[in-house]
């Protein structure tokens, strides 16, 4: 009797209510968790398997396990490295511009005295518009002969067919479309800065400039970092804009576009999958870097600092 008592206690400690709660949680999470795991977890493993094979759908008979030789092929390929650096350049420059422009836009939306609702509505249009649609707009704007912007360039120039102007236009399209999203995230950060704090700072003799740099920005730090992380990872996946604007001509393609060309255009599943895996690893590395360097905690988890 005395030996059985503690066991009975332990069992009773988790009451009916608590067990019911756990069971409910399990059932509620199961569909979402299963879908996410099945549609990302299994395929990424499958992509790893494909990347270890010579597998070209045009020559299915030559399918064979080749170990890491696909990786060697991709990593020594100048096209891959060109695409990689183009992607990095687009990511870094567009995110940097978006941060500055987004901050200005956020301040404007947050502080404006007139038409606050109108301006907040307008800003959502670039966010909501289909990327491909906006990209066509930019493409025709810069196409000599049809475009209103092309007319401003010296005659004979075709910016979308040259590397540097092409990348610049890709960045322009990317910045135009995603700055509002950045601005909205930053505006939510601005709302976290208590008004009284800014009043106190100005009573302490801080100028508007000092208030921004020494009160507002430090308090917004978490919001800025989350926005930067989201946008960096998003920019690194850039595909739609380049596909429409230059189609990757004149070495303006990103890694995503290169992988797509190999997969769907070239039907070379081995090489394409290798690139897919490499892109996945790069994105993972960027996330880890951000989280390690800045200590961003995931949204939705507890213990987030404010």
């Amino acid at each position: 009797m005395s030996t059985r008592a503690p066991a009975r206690h332990a069992r009773r400690r988790i009451s009916e209510e608590k067990t019911a709660q756990r069971r409910l949680a399990l059932w509620l999470c199961a569909p979402a968790a299963l879908i996410m795991l099945l549609v990302t977890g299994w395929p990424i493993l499958y992509a790893v398997l494909l990347s270890l094979q010579r597998y070209d759908l045009r020559f299915p008979d030559e399918r064979a396990w080749v170990g890491l030789s696909n990786y060697a092929a991709v990593l020594t390929d100048p096209f891959w490295w060109n695409a990689f650096w183009v992607t990095v350049v687009i990511t870094v420059i567009s995110v940097a511009i978006e941060l500055v422009l987004g901050m200005l836009l956020a301040l404007a939306m947050y502080r404006t005295l007139i038409g606050r609702g109108v301006i907040r509505t307008l800003v959502l249009i670039p966010y909501g518009i289909v990327t491909v649609v906006a990209a066509y707009g930019w493409r025709y704007a810069w196409t000599p002969g049809t475009g209103w912007l092309a007319g401003a360039l010296p005659p004979g120039s075709a910016p979308l067919t040259e590397k540097i102007p092409g990348v610049a236009i890709i960045i322009l399209a990317e910045v135009w479309k995603t700055t509002p999203f950045m601005a909205l995230l930053l505006m939510a950060g601005l709302a976290l800065v208590p008004d009284d704090l800014l009043k106190a700072a100005s009573m302490d003799g801080a100028t508007a400039w000092q208030r921004f740099w020494q009160v507002t920005l430090p308090l917004m730090r978490p919001a800025i970092l989350v926005a930067l992380l989201f946008r960096t990872l998003d920019a690194f996946r850039i595909f739609d804009n380049i596909y429409v604007l230059t189609g990757g001509a004149a070495d303006t393609g990103s890694v995503s576009l290169l992988a797509y060309r190999n997969l769907i255009g070239g039907l070379n599943l081995g090489i394409g999958s290798t690139m897919s895996v490499l892109i996945f690893l790069t994105v993972a590395a960027i996330s880890v870097l951000f989280i390690r360097a800045f200590g961003i905690s995931a949204p939705g988890t507890q213990g987030e600092r404010r």
């Binding site: 996410m36 992509a47 690194f236 996946r237 992988a259 997969l263 599943l269 897919s276 996945f280 994105v283």
Partner: peptide
């Protein structure tokens, strides 16, 4: 609700949110 595995679920969702779609195209 309080249940074991909550943080794992949040982490998995975050991972998916950051996932490069192109990596899924071939598989």
């Amino acid at each position: 609700l309080d249940f074991p595995g909550k943080n794992t679920l949040v982490a998995v969702s975050l991972l998916v949110a950051m996932f490069p779609q192109i990596s899924l195209v071939s598989p």
